[in-house]
C-alpha cells in the first residue's frame, strides 16, 4: 500500500533544500554551504522509512546532478547509499539524542562527500583541499536546525 498523503510537503522541503544548495553565497562562504538535500532526505527517511526510501534518494540525487551540472548518477549513488544506511539504522537512530544523531549524520555526510570526491577523481584529477571537508562539519552543526524545522513541518498538519 502506497500512501501518498503528505507527499507534497516532503517534495516541497526537498525543493527548498535544492534551492538552498545553489544559494548565491560569496565565494568565501560557499565552501561552508552544507548538503541540504541530503540532510532533508535523511530526516524524511528517519521519519517515514516506509515512504521515503532509496528510490526517492536516487531520484533526487539524479535531479541534483542535473541541477549542479555533475556527471549523471554521482549524487544519485551517494544519496542512495547514505539513505540505505539510514534505513538500516532508523530504529536505533530514533532513540538517539540529537547529539548522537548528529554524530551519525557526520559520518553520512562524510561518506557522501568521499564518494563524490572519488567519482570526480576518476573523471579528472581533483585537488584535495582542506576546505573540501568544511561543508561536512557545517552540515553536522546544521542537523539540529534541520531536525527541528522539519519536525515542525511534519507535525504542523499530522501525516499518517
Amino acid at each position: 500500500m502506497i500512501n501518498t498523503y503528505g507527499f507534497g510537503r516532503i517534495i516541497l522541503t526537498l525543493i527548498i533544500a535544492m534551492g538552498l544548495k545553489i544559494a548565491p553565497l560569496p565565494h568565501a562562504f560557499a565552501v561552508y554551504n552544507p548538503d541540504w538535500v541530503l540532510l532533508t532526505l535523511i530526516y524524511w527517511s528517519l521519519a517515514f522509512p516506509e515512504r521515503v526510501g532509496i528510490f526517492h534518494a536516487w531520484t533526487f540525487g539524479l535531479l541534483n546532478d542535473v541541477l549542479t551540472g555533475r556527471l549523471f548518477g554521482q549524487y544519485a549513488l551517494a544519496y542512495a547509499l547514505v539513505i540505505y544506511l539510514c534505513l538500516l539504522a532508523h530504529k536505533r537512530l530514533r532513540q538517539f539524542s540529537l547529539i548522537q544523531q548528529a554524530l551519525f549524520i557526520f559520518f553520512c555526510l562524510l561518506l557522501s562527500q568521499l564518494l563524490l570526491f572519488f567519482i570526480k577523481n576518476i573523471q579528472h584529477t581533483a585537488e584535495l583541499k582542506p576546505t573540501f571537508w568544511l561543508s561536512v562539519f557545517t552540515g553536522t552543526l546544521c542537523w539540529p536546525v534541520v531536525y527541528t524545522v522539519l519536525r515542525f513541518v511534519r507535525l504542523a498538519k499530522p501525516i499518517n
Partner: peptide, 29 residues
Amino acid sequence: AVAASITLLTMEHISPRLDPLRAVLSLAV
C-alpha cells in the same frame, strides 16, 4: 540503485547519448 547509478556514470562518461535525458530533467530543475 547503485548499479543504475554506476551504469549512468559510465554511460555519460563515454558518450553523449544521455544528453536528451538531462535536457528533460533540467526542465524540472
